[in-house]
């Protein structure tokens, strides 16, 4: 049971949202054009490409990596990314010995300015329930098996801190530019459920 059945018909939630929007518009509290604009921002501008640029810069610029680990909110703002759910960002770095995984067991808190809105799997009851009690099992659901000597650190986003995982830079990418590297960094790797793969030659 995931709860995610994606009701798209005209009754149920669609009718309720339509009613609410019409009422709030009449009362002068919302402007349908403002709603269009917000939807457009999250559909086209705020998404994991932002986080990928942050990670690629951290991989190629040691000074930036240091600033990102010291204060992710300001380091992310250097690239122009800020907004709701991004006021207290923290970057955690994967290494040969430590693998970080981010979850929100109580709702679905997620670092919107760098990763966009969360995917269904992040919001699923399966992920929220097991990421803290069986993180290695959850990673196996994603096809990722960690060596037994790697420490897993799970970050349950129970307050206002939002986490961005800096995945490990894959071997064989030494010659790649920052832009090209940003192209291989995936959303899942920045939540900690995947590693970044080098592009096939």
């Amino acid at each position: 049971m995931s709860g995610e059945h994606h009701n798209t018909d005209d009754t149920g939630p669609a009718a309720r949202v339509k009613a609410l929007e019409a009422l709030l518009t009449e009362k002068g509290l919302v402007d349908p054009a403002a709603i269009d604009a917000i939807v457009d921002i999250y559909e086209t501008r705020v998404g994991p490409r932002n986080g990928a640029r942050v990670v690629a810069k951290a991989w190629t610029d040691p000074g930036y990596r240091k600033r990102l680990l010291a204060n992710a909110t300001s380091a992310v703002a250097e690239l122009g990314y800020a907004g709701p759910e991004g006021n207290h960002l923290v970057a955690v770095e994967n290494t040969d010995r430590v693998h970080n995984l981010v979850v929100c067991t109580l709702c679905s808190c997620y670092p919107w300015p760098v990763l966009g809105l969360p995917p269904v799997w992040y919001k699923s009851f399966a992920y929220r329930s097991r990421a803290v009690s069986d993180p290695r099992g959850v990673l196996k659901d994603f096809g990722l098996e960690l060596a037994p000597d790697v420490e897993v650190r799970v970050w349950d986003s129970s307050a206002e801190i939002r986490y961005l995982v800096i995945p490990q830079r894959p071997k064989g990418t030494e010659g790649m530019s920052e832009d090209a590297l940003a192209g291989i960094v995936t959303r899942d790797s920045m939540v900690g459920v995947a590693k970044v793969e080098a592009p096939h030659a």
């Binding site: 999250y42 067991t105 097991r130 659901d141």
Partner: peptide, 27 residues
């Protein structure tokens, strides 16, 4: 939900849209 059992494996949707219906974005 932290630590509950019984919800099954985590299933990843391929090419997932940001919103699955117009009303989702609007709400």
């Amino acid at each position: 939900m932290g630590g509950m059992d019984g919800f099954g494996p985590v299933v990843r949707e391929q090419n997932e849209p940001v919103f699955h219906a117009d009303w989702e974005g609007r709400v």
